[in-house]
Amino acid sequence: MRKLSDELLIESYFKATEMNLNRDFIELIENEIKRRSLGHIISV
């Protein structure tokens, strides 16, 4: 996760939620978004 750019991480989050991927996977992405202080972009 740390090698993904912020932009790609956010894009991955939206794609994963759109495709209804595994909730655990989405939570991993959400946690990384929060760690990077980007939660305001997706309202996490």
Rank of each mutant, 00 (worst) to 15 (best):
L9D: 01
K15N: 09
L21A: 12
H40N: 08
K15P: 00
K3V: 08
A16H: 05
V44A: 14
E32R: 01
I41N: 06
R35N: 05
D6Y: 08
I26F: 04
R2G: 11
I29Y: 08
I26M: 06
I29E: 00
E30Q: 08
L4E: 02
N22E: 11
R2A: 15
L21N: 06
N31M: 13
I33E: 00
D6W: 07
Y13N: 00
L8D: 15
S12F: 15
N20I: 05
F14N: 06
E32W: 02
R23M: 08
M19W: 05
E7D: 11
E27P: 02
E11S: 09
K34I: 11
Y13G: 00
S43E: 13
R36G: 00
N20A: 10
N20F: 08
I33L: 15
R23K: 11
I42C: 05
L21V: 09
L9S: 00
L9V: 03
E11T: 09
T17L: 13
L8A: 15
G39P: 05
H40S: 07
D24G: 10
L21K: 07
I33G: 00
N22D: 13
E11F: 14
F14V: 08
I26H: 02
I41G: 03
K34H: 11
R23L: 08
R23A: 10
K15D: 04
V44H: 13
N20E: 07
I10K: 03
I26D: 01
M19S: 07
M19H: 07
I10L: 11
T17K: 15
E7C: 09
E30H: 08
E18V: 08
I26N: 01
E30Y: 14
E32P: 00
R35D: 03
S5V: 04
S37F: 13
I26K: 03
L8K: 14
R2P: 04
M19N: 08
M1L: 15
I29T: 01
L8E: 15
T17Q: 14
E18L: 11
N20W: 07
E30V: 15
K3H: 14
L21Y: 11
A16I: 05
N22P: 14
E27G: 07
F14Y: 13
G39I: 10
E30S: 09
K3P: 03
M1W: 10
R36Q: 00
E27H: 10
M19Y: 07
D24P: 07
I41F: 12
R2I: 10
L9Y: 01
E18P: 02
V44M: 14
E18R: 12
R36C: 00
S12V: 15
R35S: 05
I10M: 07
R35Y: 06
L8I: 10
E7G: 07
Y13V: 01
L28W: 04
E18A: 15
T17H: 14
S12Q: 14
L8G: 08
E32H: 02
E30K: 13
A16F: 08
S37M: 13
R35L: 06
S5G: 05
A16E: 04
R36Y: 01
S12K: 09
I33P: 00
K3S: 14
M1Y: 08
I42G: 04
E11H: 12
I33F: 05
I42D: 03
L4N: 02
L28F: 05
S37Q: 12
R23H: 10
A16G: 04
F14E: 04
S12R: 07
H40P: 05
N20S: 09
D24H: 09
R23T: 07
I42K: 04
G39R: 06
L28C: 05
L21G: 06
M19Q: 09
V44E: 13
R35Q: 04
I26R: 04
L9M: 02
H40Y: 12
G39L: 13
D6H: 04
G39N: 10
R36A: 00
I10S: 02
H40V: 06
F25S: 05
L38M: 07
E7K: 13
N20P: 05
E32T: 01
S43L: 12
L38D: 01
G39M: 14
I42V: 08
D24W: 15
A16Q: 04
R2W: 13
E27K: 12
L8T: 10
R23P: 10
K34R: 14
I10N: 01
S37T: 07
I41V: 11
L28M: 13
L38N: 01
I26C: 02
G39W: 15
I41A: 11
I10T: 03
L38P: 01
L9K: 01
D6R: 04
E7I: 10
R36M: 01
M19V: 05
D6N: 12
E7F: 11
S43N: 13
F14C: 07
I26V: 08
Y13K: 01
D6K: 04
G39T: 14
L38E: 01
